[in-house]
Design a protein around this nucleic acid. Structure first.
Length: 251
DNA sequence: AATGTAGCCAACCGCCAGCTG
DNA sequence: CCAGCTGGCGGTTGGCTACAT
């Protein structure tokens, strides 16, 4: 299948948007909505391609967009989520109301990545992104995924390994998997070891090896699902009662 | 004051998945 | 089932600004 042309470049305006163009776009969307981005610029009388209109609306004109600096809490949330989700900016943005994927991506590349590298070079102690010794026990729990050596690999298989060092302190397999699910919203996996580890969701293509304490599962199918659905599911489960204080830190 | 450099961020590009006829 | 179209996503670019020399 051939790639559809992004836009008719001939005659299309590019570059920064003017206030007048913004107003036209806002007015048009308020009146008619944006059911078809490709047709929108023509209908609205804008010399822009549909993609450009969509981007402008999503990132700047949409109601509820939060401008300005990120708070330390927001930055910490981005770092935590990025650690688990990787460069899935849209998913991360979904957990930061008013922030866009583009903005988060920018702040990551310009601030957070550098700051993290600097912190790691300084010995990787318990300092937060601002260099403060602020990481509490609660925070440690919330990033417990780290201790499972969660790894995302290119083929969509996620694996995580459980350490044998401090088993007494560890959560049960069941809770562990639930927590990973909470962290990777789209990756919720329900493992019930009370019933011979049978899978509880149809898409579970996972492997639970109790002897080696190693999980792996194919998350490629799960990623596509509605984040809010998984979030609600997680919140409504009994487990969330046990872990609700952890998720509060995140959101 | 002029010039060079680095950082920031809005916007664009290209790919992909899903939908539709 | 297939081809075309569209929206959405992540990576990248380039213009602007602030700061340094």
């Amino acid at each position: 299948m051939g790639r559809a042309p992004c836009c008719e470049k001939m005659g299309m305006k590019r570059g920064p948007w003017t206030p007048a163009e913004d107003q036209i776009l806002i007015n048009h969307i308020h009146l008619y909505g944006h059911s078809n981005w490709r047709a929108l610029p023509k209908l609205a009388g804008l010399l822009r391609c549909g993609k450009s209109c969509r981007l402008r609306w999503i990132n700047y004109l949409r109601p509820g967009i939060k401008r300005g600096n990120f708070t330390p809490k927001e930055e910490q949330t981005i770092i935590n989520l990025h650690e688990v989700l990787g460069n899935r900016w849209s998913v991360i943005a979904a957990k930061l109301p008013g922030r866009t994927d583009n903005e988060i991506k920018n702040v990551w590349h310009t601030h957070l990545k550098k700051r993290l590298n600097k912190n790691q070079n300084n010995g990787g102690d318990n300092k937060d992104i601002n260099g403060n010794n602020e990481i509490t026990n609660k925070d440690k729990e919330s990033v417990l995924v780290d201790t499972t050596s969660l790894q995302q690999v290119s083929n969509g298989i996620t694996t995580f390994e459980m350490s044998n060092n401090n088993k007494d302190d560890m959560m049960s397999y069941e809770n562990k998997s639930a927590l990973v699910g909470a962290s990777c919203w789209s990756d919720v996996v329900y493992v019930d070891n009370s019933s011979n580890n049978e899978k509880k969701i149809d898409d579970w293509e996972g492997l639970l090896d109790m002897n080696s304490n190693k999980f792996s599962y194919n998350n490629s199918k799960l990623y596509g699902d509605d984040m809010e659905f998984w979030f609600q599911l997680f919140n409504s489960s009994r487990r969330i009662e046990e872990l609700s204080d952890i998720t509060e830190f995140w959101f």
